[in-house]
Write a protein that binds this DNA or RNA. Sequence first.
DNA 1: CTTAGGG
DNA 2: CCCTAAG
Length: 649
Amino acid sequence: MVFKKRQSHGFNNLHFPSVPKAPRSARRAFHKRIVEDSQICAFELLASLAGKLLQESESSSASSNASDANDRPAISDGVVKREQVETKPVKTECLDLGSCEESIFLPDYGSPSSDSRGSLNEIPLPAESDAILERYSTVSNSDSSEKGNSDVKPIQGEKAPKLEGAPPVTVEPCDEKPENGVGSQPLADGMETRGLILDNACSSKDPMKSCLRNPALINSDNTAKHLSHGNSLPRASDLKLGNGVKLGIRDDDENFFRFNKLSSRRKAFRPSSRIGDRRIRKLLSSKYWKAAPKLKDYELTRPLFADLGMKPLHHKRKLSCNPDKTQGDILYKRRKFSDRSVVIASDRGFSGESVCNSPEKGTSGDNGSAVLCYGGVLICTAPFSCFLVHFSKLSAVKLSIKSFKIPELFIDVPETATVGSLKRTVVEAVTSLLGGGLRVGLVLHGKKVRDDNRTLLQTGITSADSLETLGFTLEPNSVQAPVPLCSEEPPAILPCETSHLISRALVAVEPASAEALAVVPLNQKSRRSENVQRRTRRPFSVSEVEALVQAVEELGTGRWRDVKLRSFDNADHRTYVDLKDKWKTLVHTAQIAPQQRRGEPVPQKLLDRVLAAHSYWSQHQAKQHTKNAAAVATATAMLQITDGQAIEA
DNA sequence: CTTAGGG
DNA sequence: CCCTAAG
């Protein structure tokens, strides 16, 4: 398929060139910071979020413009200087970080200010206040105009370092006040509000933060340089296999590790693993959308969208050309950091499997929570959202929300649509989603907690046990945005105004393609995954194993229901299938070398019993079968004898 | 619903 | 843990 080929090469370069390996590393660092430092009250955060939703639509335009004017790096003779350095937090990465380290950036094509940037007005530029990309673009512009120094690196974030000839290596101290709470910032200032989270999560004097502010420090390689010479958005010439691949993934990860080494305090991810991914995929697939954003909505919600850190909604991996490698790498590397209570939503990427030749296949929704379709062909899936919670041992429940799960999106564009239009469609889809208003849902142990009046204690959100079982979701609050998948309505068509707004962008949207920008539900197939959630993994404790072994020793391996009733009757979360599965793994565990075993070590003594019982019951069952057969034969013979005797008599 | 076994 | 065939 044509697109498959393009996918193999284009998408990486396509999305990532503009950006920021460094930010990604920084984002990862930020993840960790959240784990470490964040004392954010989740509910404050949520409240703030809600407030922002309301206020941003009114104030963002003005405030962002203002901040834009003040905050944009100045360019002079190839020297990029940053004005108003310290008052703004490093905001942009904040939620970016939270979502996916492999995010791409969704440019804001609607920004009028794009026109004022000389040659850049050909290029769709992101919203001013939140655009990492933009800052990058600015630098790029300077650079490409032959004034810049070749060492000029992309500048991202608010704390971009000065670039004066030599690669910037200055590490600026972080002077944000950690006590800046969510509610302590004027909501009218989107940037400051955005920064709050980061403020909270960012501790001064942490090398992580320094790196965060100094992406060039990280990106001091050819790849970065390559980027800095490029446009913020991919051009045709960028759509080739090149540095992008390396840059998109490996380098970032390497940087990340480099990064990591800088930190004296290590906190780790808990790998989501495919299991977690699958779970989240199901979680996320609870809603379906049809979005036909109007111009008004679009403009109103754009800043909000950006402020919410939704740019990274798209997982780079889903756009990656090398599914095996990228996904494998990521999984592997995440595993390296495993031991903490982070649930990362997605590991499923844009893999070959996800590219389907048939709409049917692509609509199954099996590959992700969000499915991006191109001309009816599944392009990628986008499970996004990660969040973590962790608890103190005090009576207070402390948790931080890394990001939210957002509902599934289905996007359908024709084959003639441009990549740019496709991206914009995604932007609009999400914008529309958010524009409808959001509410927060809470999921515990896979079940929605609907009773808002119950206490955390009553709900069970107090123990470490619930650490992995608590989740927050963003749910549509309005009736306008979400439409049930089963809708029979014809695909929605974008209003002309919106199309026009987009046509101002670099990549012109063909009139014929405009109508294709509609975001529509795919079909009803995906519906089956609605509200299906994988159970939380609950590793068996040693005592549970012991009980299981005990029961199996007595009952055998084919009577799981009895085992359940006998030894796990009170453990509601252990089904007999679970017990059977656990026995299966126990047998396997007992058969492999101790070094290969994972998880909580099971005493060898128990494993020995497992093997003994396993072999015993294997034989016993066999015997039983022959016994039964023999018994039947005997009984038959007896009957025959009896019959014969009766006949004789 | 249970079991069994692959995913 | 999930899924599903099979009884």
